[in-house]
Design a protein around this nucleic acid. Structure first.
Length: 435
RNA sequence: GGAGAGGUGGGUGAGUUCGGUUUAAACCACAUUCCUGCUAAGAAUGCGGCCUGCGAAAGUGGGCCCGAGGGUUCAAAUCCCUCCCUCUCCGCCA
């Protein structure tokens, strides 16, 4: 949620900033006028309430003094004012709800240096990396034996069984087996071990209450993309960002605790309702995948560093795995609702010949914290909203895909990078028989 | 799932019988100051959050918050309803 007080204070600035994301000035004006109405009604209702309280006190005194008549008279007066106040409060509620609903629909103010743009085609590529990269060439050379899609490799080696997954849960629920399952486990352990010195490792529940989903902005907006367990009023989390952001919901942290950094690997569930029929092959788009998330609550001053740290960690994992990737600075038109700035990392899949998003590192400013009500006490003793920053490091299904393609050898086997040796043991080279 | 007991400010903990000088006591912790004087004791004051009015500001007025949400009442921490959580016992169970 954006800061209503800021909109009140500097409406022109907020309007101009949001116009970059296509928010109309008139919708902002509606909010401003609702706010004026809301505060006027609030004042009126509150002063009535103050009178009722005052008179009620006198009723008590009068009755104690056995002044029955006086007491009844005052009670009647108070009742009258109370009725008036009740009516006023109902009107107030209507305005307050409308104001809140309108406010919830306003996206975050983009950071000043977010590139201008309409959609994902206007995102700005800021970096590209590959093993042995050469400044004179825009792209690495891939051999023919690497140009095999991962679903084919997976079937050949018996490490990916999409048919069984579909049999159990429907299409787009992958099933990994043998060395493929172990690879997935290895990737998660590898990443968590890399982060755990600076980020507390969390293993949160895989489901969340409606209230929790609201805090991050996933509800009500993306309701069709979530799996619901209606009977128990629970939602399957689409990312560990959901539980991590709400870990300290409603709390006031000590400034000394910040930045408070956490990491978690969870299963992530996505209905992908809006993308039905697209990217249905293999692991390009699946309903369930494992992902390691990095997260930080921090002060506004720490946000830049926190964001850079998460981005650097995601990139260093990609480099350690020897994958080809690029970084995209998301433009105003492609930025997520809650984000003020996002850098996406896309890995190149030689077998499918496409870039796949495997990480999204975002700075939310105080937008999520205002919704989740997470604050900190400053050195001066005042309270302020924290900033939240998060990013994936990394989303494993697509990494798994790009990795087996990139690491495929001429004989059809897959030789995994050495960094995974501690986790893969004697299965660092996956052949038909080892799986 | 069944029975019972609970949920009060940063912490401990009164108040709930029987609604009204509690507009939440007291203690601890914390902060500032004073006294004393040396790693102690004492005293005074302060001691939360959110929303909002007035004010340039310092400040000052009002409302809301006793697990959450409703209700009754002139008036609710206190009475009623629903839900959540914690603890004890029973049942079931990896």
């Amino acid at each position: 949620m954006i800061d209503l007080a800021q909109l009140r204070r500097e409406p022109d600035f907020v309007k101009a900033a949001l116009a970059r994301r296509g928010v109309s000035g008139s919708s902002m004006d509606e909010i401003i006028s609702l706010d004026v109405d809301h505060r006027r009604l609030l004042q009126e209702a509150e002063s009535l309430r103050a009178e009722v309280k005052e008179i009620s006190r006198h009723v008590g005194e009068a009755r104690k003094n056995k002044e029955v008549e006086q007491a009844n008279e005052l009670a009647a007066k108070s009742r009258e004012l109370g009725d008036l106040e009740r009516a006023m409060s109902e009107e107030l509620e209507v305005v307050a709800n409308e104001l809140r609903e309108k406010l919830l629909q306003i996206p975050n103010i983009p950071a000043p240096d977010v590139p201008e743009g309409r959609d994902e085609n206007d995102n700005v590529e800021t970096r590209r990396w590959w093993v042995g990269m050469d400044r004179d060439k825009p792209f690495p050379v891939f051999e023919d034996f690497q140009r095999v899609p991962h679903w084919q490799i997976g079937t050949e080696l018996g490490i990916l069984d999409l048919e069984s997954g579909a049999k159990l849960a429907g299409s787009m629920f992958p099933l990994f087996r043998g060395a493929g399952a172990r690879l997935l486990r290895s990737l998660g352990a590898f990443a968590l071990n890399a982060h755990m010195a600076d980020y507390e490792e969390i293993r949160p529940p895989s489901f969340a209450l409606t209230e929790t989903m609201m805090s991050t902005g996933h509800l009500p907006k993306s309701v069709d993309d979530m799996y619901a367990i209606e009977r128990d009023d629970l939602w399957a989390i689409p990312t560990a960002e959901v539980p991590l952001t709400s870990m300290n919901r409603g709390e006031i942290l000590d400034e000394k605790q910040l930045p408070l950094r956490m990491t978690a690997q969870t299963a992530c569930f996505r209905r992908e309702a809006g993308a039905a029929g697209r990217d249905t092959r293999g692991l390009l788009r699946v309903h369930e995948f494992d992902k390691v998330e990095l997260f930080a609550y921090c002060t506004p001053d720490q946000a830049d560093d926190a964001h850079a740290d998460i981005l650097a960690r995601a990139e260093s994992l990609l480099q350690a795995l020897g994958l080809t990737y690029r970084a995209l600075d998301l433009c105003t038109g492609d930025l997520g609702t809650s984000s003020a700035r996002t850098v996406d990392l896309e890995v190149f899949s030689p077998g499918v010949d496409r870039w796949l998003e495997v990480s999204s590192v975002s700075w939310f400013r105080d937008y999520q914290a205002r919704r989740a009500n997470v604050r900190y006490r400053t050195a001066e003793g005042t309270t302020a909203l924290v900033h939240t920053v998060n990013g994936s490091a990394l989303a494993w299904a697509r990494i798994w895909a790009a990795l087996v393609e990139t690491c495929r050898q001429v004989d059809g086997s897959v030789r995994l990078p050495d960094v995974l040796a501690p986790y893969m043991g004697d299965q660092l080279v996956i052949t038909k028989k080892t799986s």
